[in-house]
Design a protein around this nucleic acid. Structure first.
Lengths: 148, 148
DNA sequence: TTATAAAAGGATTTATATGTCCGAATTTAT
DNA sequence: ATAAATTCGGACATATAAATCCTTTTATAA
């Protein structure tokens, strides 16, 4: 995969959050998406620090988006969890790969990388909502965040 | 990176091997390329099992290519060390990504993946020899496999 | 035949990503 | 005020990749 699993989990969770201003429990999100609960909670905390989510403790607490889903790009999430240079470096791991000594995949990868980077900054969480990220058995008629 | 570090090490080592039929010590390869010696030796063993290298034990022993470097593709090495499906799967890690529910990067990645796969099956170890994979300080005038 | 050099193979360690657990802090409800 | 619910933050546990170590096997050379 191009991303870590944590980033994949984060994208799935963000796409499952409601946009009506209500708060959603990490636990419910996890069971709905069939993800490891405490791990997802930790990832969501990171998204709070990146100002993608906001959280409230205590009863009636939980997580919600800080802004509408179409204002959060996939790239925002990747940068928040993997840093700004996740696509840099030689794809073959060669330390000397560069302008004067390109590796055999350098050009092909360069073109692709630009396209992937563009797609990441253009695709938003709202775009993710259009694909159904829940498992097949749960795929029909479930509201986005509901206790199981 | 798209590959594991082991695959990157393997490609660098293969590109540094001579083609005159002589045997080359894992230890010398490692010190020449500044790679961890015992780890590289283990990787080379795997390439022997994949019929990319052959080895001889004992004094005057070592490793050498089983065929000319232009007959060994980058893809051969990747398949030997990472299996045949290393490029499969959703790039975002979504289990439901597919024809009916493509992720936002699905199409961009599909095009890129095909191009990378083609490049891998077309690029050979000989192509790698053209770029200088040794460190800058060693980059000038060194024969391909020499005791340091 | 013996000593030495080197790969082969297995066991062990280290580093990092992944995943879990628990106590403290914070908010709501009674 | 007190109790309950829930995030926060750090410590702990597990899995896998990365790297090392040690013993065995095999070949060469004296």
């Amino acid at each position: 995969m191009l991303f870590t699993t944590a980033t994949g989990y984060a994208l799935r969770a963000l796409a499952a959050l409601p946009e009506d201003g209500s708060y959603c429990l990490a636990k419910d999100l996890a069971s709905q998406l069939d993800l490891p609960g405490p791990y997802l909670a930790k990832i969501l905390q990171g998204l709070v620090q990146a100002d993608i989510l906001e959280s409230v403790r205590g009863p009636k607490g939980g997580f919600r988006l800080t802004r509408p889903s179409h204002r959060i790009t996939v790239g925002d999430v990747v940068v928040a969890l993997e840093g700004p240079n996740s696509l840099e470096g030689c794809i073959m791991g060669f330390p000397t790969c560069g302008g004067d000594h390109p590796c055999p995949l350098h050009e092909a990868w360069g073109a692709v990388k630009a396209q992937v980077a563009t797609s990441m900054t253009e695709a938003t969480i709202r775009d993710l909502q259009l694909m159904d990220l829940r498992h097949q058995k749960d795929a029909r008629g479930r509201p986005p965040c509901e206790k199981p």
